[in-house]
């Protein structure tokens, strides 16, 4: 049933760091980074809610900057340093400050959007940001459960108390 075997069978070698460990793979050029992380590396903490760049569920850090893994091809991540939600907590399982703030403020219900919010905050939240600035910053992440209030509360606390 395949139409263009050559294109589909093409593989491009990539080498990148994911949560501190080096990964090498040969991937099809059209493979999304989100699919590479979830299917290729089994890092299913990165969620996929729309695959068109609106919901923010798939947010990861690429070289320290929050980015949408559904709008990024795996081949574009060659040589990049990626952090996913799996890389946020300490290796012993101790929650990061951002995660702990979410737990303290009941900032999740179903949790589907949570990884995206946490990565956006981990990558982009700056000390001293005001609530309107935070709402602007995180308006690229959709949550259907919480009504956002508890997420805003966690982020405001982080902006005020987190060490720079």
């Amino acid at each position: 049933m395949t139409s263009d075997t050559t294109a589909e069978n093409r593989r491009v070698p990539i080498r990148l760091r994911v949560n501190g460990s080096t990964e090498s793979a040969a991937v099809p050029p059209r493979l999304l980074l989100s699919d590479f992380l979830r299917e290729g590396l089994g890092l299913t903490g990165t969620h996929v809610g729309c695959e068109h760049g609106v919901c923010g569920a798939c947010t990861v850090l690429i070289d320290g900057t929050a980015a949408r893994s559904c709008l990024t091809l795996a081949v574009q991540a060659d040589e990049a340093d990626i952090t996913t939600i799996e890389g946020l907590a300490e290796p012993d399982g101790t929650l990061s400050t951002v995660q702990q703030a979410f737990a303290d403020h009941f900032s999740l219900q179903c949790g589907f959007c949570t990884a995206g919010f946490l990565m956006s905050i981990a990558g982009e939240l700056e000390q001293g940001m005001t609530e309107p600035e935070i709402r602007e910053l995180l308006s690229g992440n959709l949550c259907r459960c919480t009504g956002y209030q508890s997420i805003v509360e966690a982020a405001v606390e982080l902006a005020g108390t987190r060490e720079a």
């Binding site: 308006s139 690229g140 959709l142 956002y148 805003v152």
Partner: peptide, 17 residues
């Protein structure tokens, strides 16, 4: 066909309750 047409409100639209 997407969230570009189906407008799910974000943090900027939902006020504190």
């Amino acid at each position: 066909a997407s969230f570009m047409e189906y407008l799910v409100p974000t943090m900027s639209e939902i006020p504190p309750v």
